[in-house]
Design a protein around this nucleic acid. Structure first.
Lengths: 136, 136
DNA sequence: ACGCATTATTTGCTTGTGCATTGAATGCAT
DNA sequence: ATGCATTCAATGCACAAGCAAATAATGCGT
């Protein structure tokens, strides 16, 4: 443990604390705003967001659960239940995929698309507030 | 919604995603390492860390619960239970404070100090791995 | 065709978290 | 002193998350 190590550690630790505090503040704001205005949790919104994004790429709008897992930092089980919640709310539907019947397709419904498009401006607003408008 | 707004949003969103992913990765690693090697959760470690830090500043080593709350991003109730857990593990003790008997002092025990000093190198190692060694 | 390791998803269980409420102590106004 | 709003911490409750086990479908070697 040299003096240099101490300096490096101090630097790394303060970076970590800043990162951590910033993340917590943003998540907290997002959670409140999305919940109050659109009855959506942060994770729920994120999954809808990925689905909408994906639809642009492959207009079928279908996703295997595991494809969603990459991109959202949630365990498989958490994602499974989250999708179940979204389905109960009518924002997605699950369907078997024919070629590999272990897999489950998740597709966005019209209601899901609508809810996402309503919530999107709210999310953007909160993110801008925290991460700066940084105008070009 | 102008084109510039779109650009700003895209920028802000990608910043947010990076921040978010980075945070999740670090927390996940920290959780695993601290749990496996020292039987401590990330939040537990953070509270011990604040207590140790504070001891340096005011050698009495006593803290009101609310003083800890600032600095750890947890709700008051979560913090209350976390402290109860630490107390059960023998890392802190709670005591009434004489001047304002609503307040509760939390002080670190020797066992708490030891556990923290054991876990500290692990935390630093994980943080360095993620946030770079950035040697001066 | 049959067993067996592997992959995809779900479910049981336990735990940590937040919100709202409660219980206790304080300060202030009357 | 008494009442009342306020503050600190703890608790009841509901819910989301992770881990490990269960379930189901594949693919491969024989």
């Amino acid at each position: 443990m040299t003096e240099i190590d101490n300096d490096v550690d101090a630097d790394v630790v303060s970076t970590w604390r800043e990162l951590s505090a910033r993340h917590a503040a943003i998540v907290s704001d997002l959670e409140r705003e999305l919940q109050d205005h659109h009855d959506l949790g942060v994770s729920e919104f994120e999954v809808l967001d990925r689905l909408v994004e994906g639809v642009c790429l492959s207009p079928g709008g279908k996703f295997r659960v595991q494809e969603l897992a990459a991109g959202v930092s949630l365990s498989q089980s958490a994602l499974s239940r989250l999708i179940a919640r979204l389905e109960k709310s009518g924002f997605v539907v699950r369907s078997m995929c024919a070629d590999d019947r272990r897999g489950v397709f998740v597709n966005l419904t019209d209601a899901g698309r609508v809810r996402h498009s309503e919530a999107l401006p709210t999310q953007r607003r909160v993110l801008r507030a925290h991460l700066g408008t940084t105008p070009a």
